[in-house]
Design a protein around this nucleic acid. Structure first.
Lengths: 197, 197
DNA sequence: CACAGACTTTAACACCGTTAACTAATTAAC
DNA sequence: GTTAATTAGTTAACGGTGTTAAAGTCTGTG
């Protein structure tokens, strides 16, 4: 076998290829199996090329994490345009959260350093995460215009409930079917949102 | 430097040394920094010796995870002996959960595959975890003797709330002080326990 | 002294993240 | 047209990882 030509790609395409391949390996084999060399093989380049797009594996993971939060943000803004009622907004956003975690588990994992995914940069320093947070905080505020302190607290409660159920739901999916967990999730989030008025 | 004598130890002592060292490195540098060679260095042996005690790194992690659940179980049983009121029991157990996660974070991390800790064996297959689960389920049952299904659901809700708050509380500890998070945790767990009667 | 057995280490394999050095091809300058 | 500079990509290396086979080093016994 000689002269296998790799089809020409723009810089942007190659960059996207790296990200897509990383997520693809993570989805199929878990984040602990993602390596620069494997990514390079998949995009038909040698390993050092990957470093021309991402200075380190850590930065690649951080990029993917940011992408996750940006995606979430877009979805939240879509919901905000669709509904005016804060109660409806918060509930729908809760559902989006579940959907996202189930449909793109490798993304959710890298966002919260779950199941072998490990990104050094602390999540709380991510601007994208803070943008997402402030959207939810604003909704809660339009609900009950209390002090910043109380809003923070309610947001923390909402986030914990949602994140906890998503984590355990996916963790125990072989014991308790995901549909069942989702049902409990909807109930709980509905109850939480109700309790706010 | 010649003939550094390592003090004689029993098999049990060496085994304990391996586990302790692993946890020690994890606590100080994170689980991603724990390696067999580092452990071997610390216990003054060469790497292959570690394999005479644990067939693989994965099995070592699984052992540590089990130890965590056994510890939790002991604490839960202690609480059960101290109090008879199910409401009090469940609340105190919630507090133990928080305490444990804060005092032994490296343990909590390996139990739930958090922050770089990665243990292949699924948690839900751990007998030690199931023992812990059934203790809590029993308490909830003595509360409200409903169907197994409803108990499972309530347990899932309790566990999610607790685990979610612990995860986010420790994750955001540089943004929101741990004491503050603990306060919110206590309130929320108290409210949950109340809601059961 | 020779041999057996337990105990421990060395050396190797295949992989990892990362980087320096090298090669081949294209372009620019004279 | 020939040479120099720039670009694109590779190979090879360093120090690290989990893991295992082979080799060594003792100690006690016949």
């Amino acid at each position: 076998m000689q002269a296998i030509e790799r089809k020409p790609r723009t810089r942007e395409q190659t960059r996207m290829g790296i990200v897509l391949t990383a997520k693809d390996i993570a989805r199929r084999e878990g984040w602990q199996a993602v390596s620069i060399r494997k990514i390079a093989d998949a995009i038909e380049y040698s390993a050092p090329i990957v470093y021309e797009y991402f200075d380190s594996k850590d930065i690649l993971l951080d990029e993917i994490r940011s992408e996750g939060f940006r995606h979430l943000r877009q979805e939240y803004e879509r919901i905000n345009k669709l509904f005016r009622d804060p109660e409806k907004r918060l509930f729908e956003i809760s559902l989006i959260q579940w959907q996202f975690a189930v449909q793109q588990p490798e993304m959710y994992q890298v966002m919260y350093n779950l199941n072998g995914a490990y990104c050094t940069m602390p999540v709380y320093q991510s601007e994208e995460m803070q943008a997402v947070s402030s959207i939810v905080c604003d909704i809660i505020f339009s609900f009950i215009p209390k002090s910043k302190e109380s809003i923070q607290k309610l947001y923390f409660e909402w986030w914990s409930l949602s994140h906890g159920m998503i984590m355990l739901g996916t963790m125990l999916k072989d014991q308790q079917p995901l549909d069942k967990s989702e049902q409990v999730y909807r109930e709980s989030m509905r109850r939480f949102v109700r309790s706010l008025r």
